[in-house]
Amino acid sequence: MRKLIVTGANGAGKSFVAARLSAVRPEIPLISFDKIKLTSDWQHRPRAEIEQGLEQVISKEAWILEGGPSLLTHALPKADAIIWLDPPLILRAWRLLVRPWQNRGKTRAELPAGNFD
């Protein structure tokens, strides 16, 4: 597999799982959909710019793409496989509650600069 999507709801563990997969296959680039769709302060790029950025990624011969289900319309037809993470709601809620404290004052690796939890 050279084209893999890791998706699921917020707090599902997408970034964690994708980073682990990338560590096993470092020759395959890890792409965060958030870096394609966001600027700073959680502002979304224009839709056409998001679609163009995503198209540039999925046209390549290999990638691990992590992000929410909104990327699926474009990426799924080009993917070799998809991992859909669906942990229990209580676990997702806990992760979303704790995450801002774990990342206080810094931007998580999968986000563009200037996006703080």
Rank of each mutant, 00 (worst) to 15 (best):
Arg20Tyr: 04
Glu51Phe: 04
Thr7Asn: 10
Pro29Val: 01
Arg2Thr: 03
Gly8Pro: 09
Ala19Phe: 04
Ala9Ile: 08
Val6Phe: 15
Lys35Leu: 06
Gly8Tyr: 13
Ser40Phe: 05
Arg47Glu: 15
Ile5His: 13
Ser15Trp: 12
Met1Gly: 12
Leu30Cys: 02
Gly53Thr: 05
Asp41Gly: 10
Lys35Ile: 02
Ala9Glu: 15
Ala48Lys: 10
Ser15Lys: 10
Ala18Leu: 13
Thr7Met: 13
Pro26Phe: 01
Asp41Thr: 03
Gly53Arg: 13
Ala19His: 10
Thr7Gln: 14
Lys3Glu: 10
His44Gln: 06
Phe16Leu: 14
Arg45Asp: 00
Glu49Thr: 10
Lys35Cys: 11
Leu4Lys: 12
Ser40Val: 00
Glu27Trp: 01
Leu21Ser: 06
Pro46Arg: 12
Asp41Tyr: 06
Gly8Phe: 11
Ala23Val: 02
Ser32Leu: 10
Ala48Trp: 04
Ile36Gly: 00
Gln43Asn: 10
Asn10Lys: 11
Ile31Tyr: 07
Ser40Gln: 12
Ser40Thr: 02
Arg45Val: 02
Gln43Arg: 15
Val6Asn: 05
Ile50Pro: 00
Ser40His: 12
Leu4Pro: 04
Leu4Asp: 05
Leu4Arg: 13
Phe33Ser: 01
Ile50Ala: 00
Asp34Gly: 08
Gly13Val: 04
Val24Ser: 07
Trp42Ser: 01
Arg25Trp: 14
Ser32Trp: 06
Gly11Gln: 07
Ile5Cys: 12
Trp42His: 03
Pro46Gln: 11
Leu30His: 06
Val6Cys: 07
Ala48His: 14
Ile36Met: 03
Lys35His: 09
Ser40Gly: 03
Phe33Gln: 09
Arg20Ala: 15
Thr7Pro: 10
Leu54Glu: 11
Leu4His: 13
Lys3Arg: 15
Ser40Glu: 14
Lys35Pro: 01
Met1Phe: 07
Lys14Ser: 03
Lys14Ile: 08
Ile31Arg: 07
Ile36Ala: 02
Ile31Met: 05
Glu49Cys: 05
Ser32Lys: 08
Ser32Pro: 13
Val6Leu: 14
Val17Glu: 04
Gln52Tyr: 09
Thr39Gly: 04
Glu27Leu: 01
Leu21Thr: 05
Pro29Thr: 00
Ala9Arg: 15
Met1Glu: 04
Pro46Tyr: 02
Phe33Trp: 14
Ile50Met: 10
Gly53Ser: 09
Ala48Asp: 14
Arg2Pro: 01
Pro46Gly: 01
Arg25Met: 15
Leu54Phe: 07
Glu51His: 11
Thr39Trp: 00
Ile36Gln: 04
Gly53Val: 07
Ser40Ala: 13
Gly53Pro: 09
Ser15Gln: 12
Ile28Ser: 01
Leu21Pro: 07
Phe16Arg: 10
Pro46Asp: 13
Lys37Tyr: 12
Met1Pro: 11
Thr39Leu: 09
Gly11Asn: 06
Ala18His: 08
Leu21Asp: 03
Arg45Ser: 00
Arg25Ala: 15
Phe33Cys: 01
Pro29Tyr: 06
Gln43Gly: 00
Ile5Val: 12
Gly13Trp: 11
Ile28Tyr: 05
Phe33Leu: 15
Leu4Phe: 08
